[in-house]
Design a protein around this nucleic acid. Structure first.
Lengths: 106, 106
DNA sequence: TCGATTGTTTAGTATATACTAAACAATTGA
DNA sequence: TCAATTGTTTAGTATATACTAAACAATCGA
């Protein structure tokens, strides 16, 4: 099975405002919340309830370019993972605080 | 001297994504950072280094409608204040964490 | 081999955003 | 009274965004 890693930017090149803008979309915020709670990579199939595939694919790309997730492609499937270690290093407490504040207030 | 209070929304009606979108602009994030550190209301004159007045005025309005600040008009001057108590109640730790992560990473 | 599956990319559209300049409104101080 | 000050609002523009449908690419399983 062929594996492929879509390119993610270096977190040091990501500004806080870029990251906030990415998280300011409800769909993307829900995806990140799911990834944080999962504590491991999640198949894109898990997110189909959030909208059309083509639209979701754009959101994945947005999250990747904002430094929030890495995307691994394996066979026909794609998997998203939160870049937690790198994020925690550059933006301490940020993702957790935001996600914690998103329950029922998204 | 006539005083006037521009209308601010009830924080309960503000979604996290609305708030994040407002903070995802560098100018607005800097304003909020200044207000948080000031711990009191600040004259708009303090923000003139951040751009043209007409543009700043739009940013103030955006921050107000996002629930982040209150605006008091007194004479020819306007004053912004962070709605800290209400924000802390609805979104615990959020503003402080975001502003803390904005130093040099705006 | 070939149809179905899974997801990405492209093209097109409608809406939102950030910015500028100019007009406007209210206030102040000479 | 009147010019200067302070900030808001409006009009106009350029760019970005979210969404959809359709085309595309790669893979899997019968």
């Amino acid at each position: 099975m062929i594996e492929q890693q879509f390119e993610s930017p270096n977190l040091a090149d990501i500004s806080l405002t870029q990251l906030l803008k990415s998280l300011s979309d409800p769909t993307r915020l829900k995806i990140v919340g799911t990834l944080l709670r999962a504590k491991k990579e999640v198949s894109c199939a898990q997110f189909e309830n959030l909208g059309k595939k083509s639209n979701l694919s754009q959101h994945y790309r947005n999250l990747r370019l904002a430094g929030l997730v890495s995307i691994r492609r394996a066979g026909r499937h794609s998997y998203l993972a939160l870049r937690k270690t790198a994020l925690d290093e550059r933006f301490p407490d940020l993702i957790e605080t935001i996600v914690n504040n998103s329950e029922d207030k998204c």
